[in-house]
């Protein structure tokens, strides 16, 4: 069965994830997505316990806040205690994830909160999660509204000050000497990445979300020589992977989020091989 809701949701998720991913890949901070996706588990549990329902915005709020907290902890450990960034990422997110699993085991039994859906997501259930019937929001599933809000936030963040994002991503110290408030910009970016992870993860799970974020961006980087083009190509590849992956899933009857990441990964591999060939030809 082809569901327009599932396709549109995954398209939007892929596009939003690839925007955040572009900046993470350039800053060699790709693993952060994985860290956030796992570390928000305790936030989910707390939100769930307080709201006692799965669709409450409290859950999003707590999860996104936990994601941001984890990001800041990693940053802080690295900057002030001089812990190597991979080490601090590993330390922080595994501890948070363990805490979350403890929470799920203790409180998750009489709730339909289980580790499977957290790890693998449930894209096919998306159409059944809708806002209250009778309101105009009922027109589309929650996930579509969430992703549209996110897309709007990315536009507000990036469009008016695009040159500044370029400068900060390339050379953060130079941007700082220009008097740009780079810490605030960083925080805004990480908050959106965190929110993007939280909202994607219900659909595609804690593991595959990294593929959605990083693969299109990493592929695009192999082809372009300007940041604008990298972002545009990254979005296009994300959209293509979502559509291609959905078609593949429908054809061989698989979970769509899996095939989407597989298609994305294939793009990356092919680009890598092609670009290596062309480099050899020039050299």
């Amino acid at each position: 069965m082809i569901s327009a809701a599932v396709l549109i949701t995954s398209l939007l998720i892929a596009i939003n994830a690839s925007i955040g991913g572009t900046f993470l890949v350039l800053r060699r901070m790709g693993m952060l997505t994985d860290a956030i996706a796992h570390a928000i588990l305790p936030g989910l549990v707390i939100g769930y316990l307080l709201a006692e329902s799965r669709s409450s915005p409290l859950i999003t709020l707590f999860a996104a806040a936990t994601g941001l907290l984890v990001t800041l902890l990693i940053y802080w450990l690295n900057k002030y205690l001089n812990v190597w960034v991979e080490a601090s990422t590993g330390m922080v997110y595994t501890s948070f994830f363990a805490l979350g699993i403890l929470g799920v085991t203790l409180f998750g039994e009489n709730a339909d909160l289980d580790t499977d859906c957290i790890l693998y997501g449930e894209l096919l259930w998306i159409p059944f999660r809708r806002p209250l019937s009778g309101t105009f929001l009922d027109f589309a599933p929650w996930a579509v509204w969430q992703q549209l809000v996110l897309l709007g936030l990315w536009a507000i963040l990036l469009l008016p000050s695009w040159p500044i994002w370029k400068s900060i991503s390339f050379d953060i110290d130079f941007a700082r000497t220009q008097g740009l408030n780079v810490e605030r910009k960083n925080l805004q970016l990480l908050a959106l990445v965190s929110l993007s992870t939280v909202w994607s993860f219900e659909a595609v799970g804690a593991i595959l979300v990294m593929g959605f974020m990083l693969l299109p961006a990493a592929t695009a980087w192999l082809w372009v020589k300007r940041l604008e083009h990298m972002l545009a190509l990254s979005i296009a590849l994300a959209a293509l992977s979502a559509i291609g992956g959905y078609a593949l899933a429908w054809w061989i009857n698989l979970d769509p989020s899996t095939t989407m990441v597989l298609v994305s990964g294939t793009f990356f591999l092919l680009s890598l091989l092609w670009q290596r060939k062309s480099t050899l030809r020039v050299g």
Partner: peptide
């Protein structure tokens, strides 16, 4: 101090010197 694989042209980098903080709309 920077990664020269960053996707930018020579012109892009020189233009980075022109940004000044303060305004909301900061296109060049």
């Amino acid at each position: 101090s920077v990664d020269w694989n960053f996707p930018a042209t020579v012109m892009d980098v020189v233009l980075m010197g022109r940004y000044r903080p303060g305004r909301f709309w900061q296109r060049l």
